[in-house]
């Protein structure tokens, strides 16, 4: 127990870095995932194919592989970073974008196709149909599953700890090494700080779900 109090500065530092990784990757993944979903329903066959291939490959490979690519393979191809955080953000957002894309796509499919036809019939272009008619309705239904994906993202960011990023889990490893007699309490501390992010997210999902249910 004492080890948690004593190491609060490290925990706090790790907590902030985890929050930073998750927030930046989350925002990038939301944008990229929505674009991938848009590509998936676009009239251009090449875009549809790319989006489908991306989602299938990335969604079905372990996150560690994505990290390995970002942290080890990319630098060998000449893409180098000053900090490992950049590699972590690339891996996390690329990985999470695939899941966001699938969630948005299911939301798009939940909007009756007739509304898209009606929008095209009054002369709207593809982009307008998507941004004015489909996405506003799709995103509403997709918020709860999207928050689940973001919760997974927060937890997935712990993989960065294995790639030299000192976030919550990275510090956890370090502290466990330094306090071999109190490993359990070190990990309880790590878990607590993860819960500090994920529990409020889960609460938010619940609230949004209720609100959407009422709006219908």
């Amino acid at each position: 127990m004492d080890v948690i109090i004593e190491s609060l500065p490290q925990y706090w530092d790790g907590f902030l870095r985890t929050l930073f990784l998750a927030a930046v990757s989350g925002i990038i993944a939301l944008v990229a995932g929505t674009l991938l979903a848009a590509a998936r329903v676009s009239p251009v066959a090449a875009l549809r194919g790319f989006s489908m291939a991306y989602v299938e490959v990335v969604r079905n490979t372990p996150l560690t592989i994505a990290f390995f690519f970002a942290a080890v393979v990319l630098p060998r191809l000449g893409v180098t970073f000053q900090q490992f955080e950049v590699a972590a953000i690339i891996a996390l957002s690329a990985y999470t974008a695939a899941f966001i894309a699938e969630a948005v796509r299911s939301g798009v499919n939940s909007v009756p196709v007739g509304q898209a036809e009606a929008a095209r019939s009054i002369g709207m272009k593809f982009g307008q149909v998507l941004s004015l008619i489909i996405l506003p309705q799709a995103l509403r239904t997709v918020i709860p599953p999207m928050i689940n994906i973001l919760i997974a993202l927060v937890k997935n960011s712990s993989v960065a700890g294995a790639f030299y990023v000192l976030e919550l889990f990275g510090y956890g490893k370090q502290l466990a090494n330094d306090h071999g007699d109190a490993v359990m309490w070190v990990l309880v501390g790590v878990a607590f700080f993860y819960l500090l992010i994920t529990v409020p997210l889960g609460y938010l999902a619940h609230q949004v779900e209720r609100k959407v249910a009422i709006a219908r």
Binding site: P43, V111, P112, G114, Q115, E117, A118, A119, R120, S121, I122, G123, M124, K125, I133, P136, Q137, R140
Partner: peptide, 25 residues
């Protein structure tokens, strides 16, 4: 073909569907 020209032409053709298809939001 599909594209801007078609959108412009569709604006001149009103369509009413069996299932109304009003924008629900």
């Amino acid at each position: 073909e599909e594209g801007k020209e078609l959108a412009r032409l569709r604006a001149d053709v009103g369509m009413v569907f069996q299932s109304f298809n009003l924008f629900a939001h």
